[in-house]
Design a binder for these strands. Structure first.
Lengths: 253, 253
DNA sequence: GGCATCGTGCGACATTGTCGCACGCTCACC
DNA sequence: GGTGAGCGTGCGACAATGTCGCACGATGCC
């Protein structure tokens, strides 16, 4: 067994210390804890900060884990694995709800549809798998953005395009929608993406409760919503139940 | 600005590729994608595997992100920050429920109590902040173990001590309790830790929906439960609402 | 003000990381 | 079955990089 790269090993020790130690640490504390000379620890930390795996508070000079590392964790499962785990439940949801079902994950500011189940009737439908839909305009996307603040910021920074008159196009409007989604634990989008159509979606949680995907139904507004354009509770229950079942599978034993 | 440690930079590029690329990748694909010689890529990967940041499927020789990295992400907030964010809501929960409140996080197989609010009456109470309670025996702990499978495995491997006749002491009993917790989104423990006392707890979710702590109430069984020893719905609602409010704060804008 | 400690960065040089190469294994094609 | 191509793995030479002592400026305490 050939040698390992010492500097990478050391960087992992630093990261573990930041993650499990008493919190924000100083260079000296890190160096002492790991038995490294101060300069060595500092070189490692400087690099970790540069790559986004650690962050330093300029006021106190203390270090903590960085967003770049958290971002990595949040995409720990790939599209194929998400799809494989969601397949059967997505089919069942289409049967129960009578609507078409999509499973998606955030990708480059949009939602990549990793699985699509047609509405269980003989209507004309086109296959959506592989397509990318706008996150801010769809229920799938709202669920994903609600739990991934950095992605939400990116989407806002890129500009919130209007697809219909009901698409949220301001930071405030989107923030309100995302807050509501977090409060309810599911999302509703009424004519945000396509006129006359609505979507209900719920989060898919992986290891540690991490939101790594979303499952949702979509169909005509009058079928998904009551007369006050609120989501029909029975449909919400179906979507949330399917999301929970998939999440149990994703979270492990 | 002095130089950065190149091998650490390269390891981060590999990790990002594993996280955002098409999924399970081979040495050659990684080397080509990053413009590195095959041997260099392999040295980096061998090290990443050794530190747990990457894993290789022995059958296919393909690499993916490792559990060690996901573990880091799940403890990205420290106890002080958790406490600061939960303070006010914990006080409000004690007022509304009329019971004492604890906020905790997993630490070395137990639950570290990071904040404790006394029951809002004049009864004799002792300060619990800083103490560590057994994860498998308490509602706080059940919530945390329900969403952190690796920690649950560790706790089981360390042995499930009995504190009362109702403490779950087998893998099956604990797994059942954790599954129920995940299904409901909150946990109940009746006389699992102390005779005559019960606890109701719900998860605190951070960035990405990650469960990084729990908040709960505890008190006499007859006050927390109905005659069938089921949690009183009004109390569950209070706990879940507090958990949600704190989670909104923890998740960012 | 003096002293101790810390974080940061420079630069010498020893150690470590890089990486070409060889080998065994697997797979596809004839 | 035989052959060739491509891959993953590991060895080892050596150049490049990482290590780390030291100096300096900033901060806090007495």
């Amino acid at each position: 067994m050939p040698g390992l790269i010492q500097s990478i090993e050391r960087s992992s020790a630093v990261l573990r210390l930041l993650a499990t130690g008493p919190g924000r640490l100083r260079v000296k504390e890190i160096a002492d804890a790991l038995g490294l000379p101060k300069s060595t620890a500092q070189s490692i930390l400087r690099t970790l900060v540069a790559i986004g795996f650690a962050e330093q508070d300029p006021r106190t000079a203390r270090y903590r884990l960085g967003r770049g590392l958290l971002d990595l964790g949040s995409t720990g499962l790939d599209a194929n694995e998400l799809r494989a785990r969601a397949l059967n439940w997505a089919d069942a949801l289409a049967s129960r709800s009578g609507e078409e079902v999509h499973v998606g994950a955030l990708r480059d500011g949009g939602v990549l549809v990793v699985h699509h189940v047609f509405r269980p009737d003989d209507s004309a439908q086109s296959m959506d798998t592989g397509s990318v839909v706008p996150a801010h305009a769809t229920a799938l996307g709202r669920v994903l953005l609600a739990y991934q603040a950095a992605a939400a910021e990116d989407v806002i920074a890129s500009g919130l395009d209007a697809y219909t008159r009901r698409t949220p196009t301001t930071r405030q409007a989107l923030a309100r929608a995302l807050a509501e989604t977090r409060a309810q634990g599911w999302a509703l989008s009424v004519e945000g993406w396509q006129a006359g159509r609505a979507g209900i979606a719920a989060p898919l949680r992986s290891y540690g409760g991490l939101v790594i995907g979303a499952i949702g139904i979509s169909g005509p507004v009058e079928r998904l919503c009551d007369t006050r354009r609120q989501a029909r509770p029975a449909l919400v229950d179906h979507v949330v139940a399917a999301a929970r079942a998939i999440s149990r599978d994703l979270a492990g034993p």
